[in-house]
Design a protein around this nucleic acid. Structure first.
Lengths: 163, 163
DNA sequence: TATTGTTATACTCTATAACTATA
DNA sequence: TATAGTTATAGAGTATAACAATA
């Protein structure tokens, strides 16, 4: 396993050259395979009873936007309201947040992070950053920033309406 | 929604600057969100009765490596042998491949693509390439090649032992 | 003993639909 | 009527464990 050689880009028109065809050259396939690796390392880092990626993501939003509603959080996470219930149950069970009543609209329950939750998130994000630094150590900071920008370029058009 | 501004890389030491912290700056989170979008567009492209991403991937290997065994295919796809059974059932049900006996070792059944399967794959890969060209049209060819190289840089260390 | 394909089973993630209590 | 949270349910996708046939 040599230290990785980045393929140089190649101009392409209507048809791709043979060497650039096939599964291994599809962004989607590579996205999936790369995500499986990152997710596995994230889970190993967080440990047996650690937060799953989606629970961690939800907590991040709650810490960042205290008193966010579940509907709003679901929209931001790109999932259905119904699917969020188990995630919030998980976080509430860990004592990381509480469902609090909102004066003026008794339908909604604002999600308020606890002190324990804020501290747990601070630790988790530090662990996550360390996990990525370790896993992606073959990449330069430049390359990581470039990757981030390119992934956002995929996300932005598709999520524009949902946000 | 402006035409997308790629963030310039920034040097970082032990601590990240505030603007570079949080969920939105994690590669893993962005990988997941980007993949969800690409997968959704892939499925919409393939249509109601089209191949799922994993079935398409499996067919790609079978067409590329006729008479591959199920164990070998599972290893290459990074999944368990047991999980491959339903995928091969799907492809066999579509008439895209056949399980064929191998003289010399009666345990294994080689996967041989049919003519229909080869043609279906040719059409599917063309559709997949068109779907990515359409979905990723905001990115230059250079940027797409760069993204591919970076995703492979994540995959290679983690998959090295499995291949 | 080890390997191949298979089945049984369970768990995670997600979606749709329907319910309730509010508005 | 519409919305927020919830429940019930189902369907992918994946994993582990065990099995029969074969090596």
């Amino acid at each position: 396993m040599p230290p990785q050689s980045r393929k140089k880009p190649q101009p392409q028109g209507d048809e791709l050259p043979m060497a650039e065809r096939g599964l291994e050259n599809l962004i989607g396939y590579n996205l999936k395979r790369a995500y499986v690796i990152v997710r596995g390392d994230f889970r190993a880092t967080m440990g047996e009873d650690g937060m799953s990626p989606r629970v961690f993501s939800a907590l991040s939003f709650v810490v960042d936007m205290p008193d966010i509603t579940q509907s709003e959080l679901a929209r931001r996470l790109g999932i259905e309201r119904s699917g969020l219930v188990a995630i919030v149950d998980d976080l509430e069970g860990r004592g990381y947040l509480r469902r609090t009543a909102v004066p003026g609209d008794r339908r909604v329950q604002a999600l308020r992070p606890t002190q324990v939750g804020v501290e747990a998130f601070a630790e988790a994000i530090a662990q996550a950053e360390a996990h990525e630094a370790r896993l992606l150590q073959v990449m330069s900071e430049d390359e990581k920033a470039q990757l981030l920008a390119l992934l956002r370029a995929i996300r932005e058009p598709g999520e524009a309406d949902a946000i």
